[in-house]
Write a protein that binds this DNA or RNA. Structure first.
Lengths: 332, 332
DNA sequence: TTGTATGCGTTATCAC
DNA sequence: GTGATAACGCATACAA
């Protein structure tokens, strides 16, 4: 491994000149530039990024804290983030927590240690105090999931209204006994808002509340299947399922098919997120498009603003539109 | 942001002592330690990782180069890698290329620039020369996909034998016209070996060869559906499909169901990788378990050996066992 | 047990 | 247009 020193010696110039050549700074004569470039070539010199980082106090890396990525829902957000990041010469460090708080703390430490210039939280278990503290000291953006009371800005979707629309769709399709199924954390805003809409719509129509959640995520599918089984055992009259994700919907449908129920004739099912799963499954699943790629792009743009302090007063709440996508699983 | 200097001043000790406290080095009196810890606490001091990295010429980060991660197949490998990495105080940087060579080169540069201490290649488009050059200069390990002629070590599976077994299974289940479907890169070793077995088994049994590939990956499913449609139009006699992944199998089955074919009665289908998809789909898909988590663990252990030069002569070829998992899609 | 001094590799300021 | 040099924050060899 050669250093800038060795290049300077070989080219018979100072390290300053070599640095200028590397960074394409103005004020280097063509002759010198070529000498230096030849030396770089001969030594196969590669700048040591750590020297640069230390000197500049900037790594051009940002960290994305996410539960897991083995789900097109999250990976689309990340692709949006990466798109904007790469166009602005930033690298994206994907860090998966799998809900483990110690892993999460470990990654947060990377922000504190100047490993990265900023952080995007997709789904996290940080407390309100932690987020507020981090937000005052470091560039921080929340996307999809967020703490509404926190001071950190976020990009998300109106989960309440989307769920309201979905519920009205189920009811207008003839459902009278609609069950709500959620697996994974019950602290997240998306679930809370979906559930709130579920309750409100049922109350408005004077229909019974039939809901069950399971803190275990288990890729959504596994937990959902058993939750659906319990619900159906206790409430054989169920004729509609509101699932908080496409994967949960698939778990429910799998259980229904085991019980020889026809979908949508006997029971209708709706999911959320419009992932590839809702298209490849049989039947295709009614769902909600959240424009996750766009959300990723926007949140990265916001983070860049914070890092490079382009704007002083950054708006805190950003809500992007959604679209209800009706497919086979809930047709009349 | 405070520095070690400020902590030293406040605690009225030298920076060396502060450094000793931070790193839990021996030879610091209890009294001094407490003084320093109080100063650290008061200043909310967080060490700047870049200083440490530069000084130690080590980042304790490794890079995983992978096509994409929105697939349980890859994410299981990565979980294995992360497991071993974290137990050895290393961080894992997940870098997705989506088959884009410029992104790939960008990430490779991070290895050259001392950003990371080593690299694991899961699926890549690096040339033989590139891999060999990198392997001589940096710690490098290949997993799953590899260039057999390269000098870099790898952990993988006997794709030929696994495919041979699968083909024999299809034939013994009664299939006489078996089609081979692959989407994505056709340069990868897994496809080449699978295809070689496909040909060998058919030749041995004197059966016709019916294969089609599509370089476009498209999440496997989309491309596979159209490939299957073409194959079925041209060869209505097909009674078995060998798909090179579970997602491809799903695409095929989707096309078959559109055509009102019964599976497995009319046509049998087998996939590969034993991802969650092969279980959640209806029918459940016969597949091959590759022990991806284990492969991830082993390859990280190997990389650690190379980084910390524990062993001198590292074996180059490592082949882990597989298991054929028969499910509904190919039952007699 | 503690402090001093040096260097890791780079960039940037200031001379010339 | 180029060079000398200080500084970034930290760890460590050596001295005390």
């Amino acid at each position: 491994m050669s250093t800038i020193q060795q290049v300077a010696s070989l080219a018979k110039v100072s390290v300053a000149t070599v640095s200028r050549v590397i960074n394409n700074s103005a004020g280097v004569s063509e002759k010198t530039r070529q000498k230096v470039e030849q030396a770089i070539e001969r030594l196969k010199y590669q700048p040591n990024a750590m020297g640069t980082f230390l000197r500049k106090d900037k790594t051009n890396m940002i960290l994305v804290l996410v539960h897991s990525v083995d789900n097109p829902f999250f990976s689309m957000i990340i692709q949006g983030i990466e798109n904007i990041a790469h166009h602005n010469n930033y690298n994206v460090l994907i860090c998966t927590t799998y809900g483990d708080r110690s892993r999460e703390q470990h990654y947060v430490k990377m922000l504190r240690n100047h490993y990265v210039d900023g952080m995007i939280l997709i789904s996290n278990t940080l407390t309100l105090d932690e987020i507020n503290e981090l937000n005052t000291n470091y560039p921080l953006v929340q996307v999809i999931e967020y703490l509404p009371e926190s001071k950190a800005p976020y990009y998300s979707v109106d989960f309440y209204q989307a769920s309201y629309d979905l519920m009205e769709h189920l009811i207008s399709s003839g459902c009278k006994n609609i069950a709500y199924v959620h697996t994974g954390s019950t602290q997240i805003i998306s679930h809370l808002e979906k559930y709130r809409a579920y309750i409100d719509v049922l109350t408005k129509h004077n229909l019974p509340i039939l809901s069950k959640t399971n803190e275990e995520y288990n890729f959504g599918f596994i937990s959902a299947k058993s939750v659906a089984a319990l619900l159906l055992d206790e409430n054989p009259q169920i004729d509609g399922f509101f699932a908080t994700s496409d994967l949960i919907a698939i778990g429910i449908i799998d259980e229904l098919q085991t019980r020889k129920k026809r979908i949508p004739e006997d029971i209708k099912v709706v999911g959320f997120d419009n992932t590839i799963f809702s298209s490849i499954y049989n039947p295709a699943i009614t769902t909600v498009e959240l424009n996750t790629y766009e959300l990723g792009c926007k949140s990265m743009e916001l983070l860049l603003n914070k890092i490079e302090k382009l704007e002083k007063d950054i708006k805190k709440d950003h809500v992007l539109p959604y679209q209800i996508i009706v497919k086979d699983s809930s047709q009349k």
